[in-house]
Design a protein around this nucleic acid. Sequence first.
RNA 1: CGCGGGGUGGAGCAGCCUGGUAGCUCAUUAGGCUCAUAACCUAAAGGUCGAGAGUUCAAAUCUCUCCCCCGCAA
Length: 314
Amino acid sequence: MDIVFFGSSQFAVPSLKALLASTHSLRCVVTQPDRRKGRHLFCSPTIVKSTAVAHNIKVFQPDQVNSGASVNFLKDLHAGLFVVVSYGNLLSEDILAIPVHAAINIHASLLPAYRGAAPINWALIRGENVTGITIFKLAKEMDAGPILAKREVAIDADDDASILENRLADASAPFLLSALDSIESGKAAFFPQDARMVTLAPKLKKIDGLIEWQKPAEQIHNLVRGCIPWPSAFTYYKGKLLKLYKTAVLPFTASHAKALPGEVVAASKAGIEIACGSGAIMILELQIEGKRRMTAEEFIIGHKVCIGETFYKK
RNA sequence: CGCGGGGUGGAGCAGCCUGGUAGCUCAUUAGGCUCAUAACCUAAAGGUCGAGAGUUCAAAUCUCUCCCCCGCAA
């Protein structure tokens, strides 16, 4: 089939590579414009653009993908199918109507659950054991179109959002190819989503990573897992921002009950124990403002963490 | 020129403001203690103080330039 691929972030790369290696013909890759980003606001291309350029695929980077000029450009490609994977922009109905077959999307959740920009993060934050990927036909409303196929992916206890994203992205690639087969052979069937089962997974904001220590240990641990690599779960220590990268939930003990939420219960090579609203967590990897990411053991050597100190606002 | 913090033995930090012998905790090595130990005691090794230039009798410390890391922001 003649395919136009829309994608921007890392999640789209395995699917793009699968298409490049397949018998399908990639007419064009549409991705977000190069943006100024990073510490010194350098202009850099999306990872999808870099991948496409490396394979000599034509790249299209409209500032306004839904503009008339952009729509005309896409029409002239005469594509059979649009494949959209973490592109980063809502596509207008005019665009969705262009391809001969359909415009399909790979979404990193089992729709209709976790509709939105951050399904992986929210699934972890909510403590889910299972998530998955869904291929569906794009519709006007975000993540609401009829479903072609779903595939479950288990969430391991040690997964953080970064690890899980990679696994889901890898699983997406062969799943996409099989979906293309079913569309090409005319056997594809699309089923509408059950509106009663819809849940939302909006884009994360910085403040979503703020740790509220009065919450149960499990919830804080899940927040840490879900906020990797951005915004990262954070708190404050001696007035400085402190990001937590890896934690573990501890069995409940009497000393945890006596301590206030956010208070240091113990600090050793094994990690830093912090009391929560119920139970406690062990901090294993962290990063203080201005320093690199380090293990709790390294942190304790340099910073004299004392029992009774608080990891909280200041 | 978006704003800010930082670079000091292998790891994490103090020292800088107010220039004058390189300091702390941990790790490492050797010895000791111990039934034994990742515990404890003693000792040792290990540093171009990110790089370069400048000021000075003298620079980790003051000035300038550059490199690298991190936080904010987007």
